[in-house]
Amino acid sequence: MRRPRTTVVVSGMIAADPFQGGASWAVLQYVLGLQRLGYEVHLVEPIPTASIQPPGTPLGESLNEAYFHRVAEEYGLERHATLLHAGTRETVGMPYDELRALCRRAAVLLNVSGMLADPELVSPIPIRVYLDLDPAFNQLWHAAEGIDMRFAAHTHFATVGQEVGSDACPVPTCGRDWIPTLPPVVLDRWPVAGEIRRDAWTTVANWRGYGSIEHGGVHHGQKAHSFRRLMELPGRTTGKFAVALSIHPGETRDVTALGANGWEILDPIEAAGTPWHYARFVAGSRGEIGIAKSGYVASRCGWFSDRSACYLACGRPVIAQETGFGRHLPTGSGLLSFGDIEGATDATARVRADYAVHARAARAVAEEYLDSDRVLGRLLGKVGAPC
């Protein structure tokens, strides 16, 4: 008799802020990667009332649901994905009672930033992993700003900040033992790319995602603060730079400076507003210029981008701002790190001098270090999940 498959619940943001293809992929890598390993996987996304679009719309008629349904349909998850109106029992997908029954038989919860907070769904699952994709900020919100990040509901804590908890990273651990885990990429969903359709160094970014944090005399800022230090980069190289950038038009000084310094600003929804548009954008680029939030850099938390993992898998070289990840991933070929504008300038020249070698090395880094089979298998092993 065949043994039932182990059930894993994944909770993360896809539709609460729709039309962010990269953010959707950050969650999909876990869902699709766990399916590859043979698990029964169910995606549950709680949507706060304030996030439902248009305001006052029933969840089932909302823009959020339309986007969620389209993504689920595209990746064969129609029967494995549920939207939950947070704080209620209103769902789209699996009815609440069936969802509760599924959680009672589930062995593991991977809960991005503790998003799923309903105790009837969370508490019955024996292995409850708080999955930190925003290292330094999640810990500082809790320790420095007194925000309840819902750590207490979890049994294990995993982070893409490779240095959180080490002597190199001053970020408070909040009394938790953090398991470092690299961002997974499902390699068969991200094959080696062919033709370069946009001959430019690209990335997808939010100029500001939320407020900055001051802690221990250190400013933990946003992408805006890092970009400003690299504003003159395009003028120092012969390459082009194109950024699918979400920036408020009221940031006139920065918008003007970006254009004046040679940064091409692309509409992020047009370029990467769905997971499939995002994948096409990444695969069609020459490579990535990966600029980190200044908080990741200042904290030396070892954050490495799930977006960079996608570029590498496509065989597109990545030039990434150093956050401490260089102690955990090989740099110098395919993946190059930099600490300042001079280092970024040098890295672009090195890739330009031998692009084919760096392209092959990029894919090799993804295969060796970021393959979802390895990354997720290792993570589940560390939390004691059944096979």
Rank of each mutant, 00 (worst) to 15 (best):
R5N: 06
V8D: 02
V10E: 02
A16Y: 05
Q20I: 03
V27S: 10
L32K: 09
L32M: 14
L34E: 04
R36Y: 07
R36E: 15
R36M: 06
L37P: 02
G38N: 12
Y39L: 04
I47P: 05
P55S: 11
T57G: 04
S62Y: 13
S62A: 14
Y67K: 14
Y67G: 03
V71D: 14
Y75L: 14
G76K: 05
L77A: 08
A81F: 03
A81E: 03
T88G: 03
E90W: 07
E98I: 00
L99Q: 04
A101Y: 07
L102D: 06
R105Q: 09
L110D: 05
S113H: 13
S113V: 00
G114K: 00
A117C: 09
V122I: 05
P126W: 09
I127D: 01
I127M: 12
V129E: 00
L133I: 01
F137L: 03
L140Q: 15
W141L: 10
A144S: 12
E145Y: 12
G146H: 07
M149E: 10
A153M: 15
H156C: 05
F157R: 08
A158I: 01
A158L: 06
S166P: 06
A168L: 13
P170F: 15
P172K: 15
P172N: 10
D177E: 14
D177N: 13
D177M: 11
I179H: 07
P180H: 10
R189I: 01
A193P: 00
E195N: 05
W201R: 15
W201F: 13
T202H: 04
N206Y: 11
N206C: 08
W207S: 07
G209N: 15
G209M: 11
Y210W: 14
S212D: 13
G216P: 00
K223Y: 12
K223N: 13
A224L: 11
H225D: 15
F227V: 05
R229T: 01
M231R: 06
P234Y: 02
T237N: 04
F241S: 02
A242Y: 03
V243P: 02
P249L: 13
D254C: 05
V255K: 08
T256N: 10
G259C: 09
A260C: 10
E264M: 05
E264N: 06
L266S: 06
D267E: 11
P268G: 02
I269G: 04
E270R: 15
A272K: 07
A272G: 10
G273M: 06
T274L: 12
S285R: 02
S285G: 06
G287V: 00
Y296H: 15
V297P: 01
V297N: 08
S299L: 07
R300V: 02
C301A: 15
D306R: 03
A309D: 09
A309L: 12
Y311W: 11
L312P: 00
L312K: 06
P317L: 13
P317N: 13
I319F: 07
A320R: 12
T323P: 00
T323N: 03
G326N: 12
L335A: 01
S337C: 13
D340E: 11
D340W: 02
I341G: 06
E342H: 12
G343S: 05
A344L: 09
A344S: 10
A349L: 12
R350C: 03
V351F: 03
V357R: 08
H358F: 02
A362G: 06
R363A: 06
V365T: 06
V365L: 08
A366R: 08
E368Q: 15
R374H: 09
V375I: 08
L376H: 11
L380M: 11
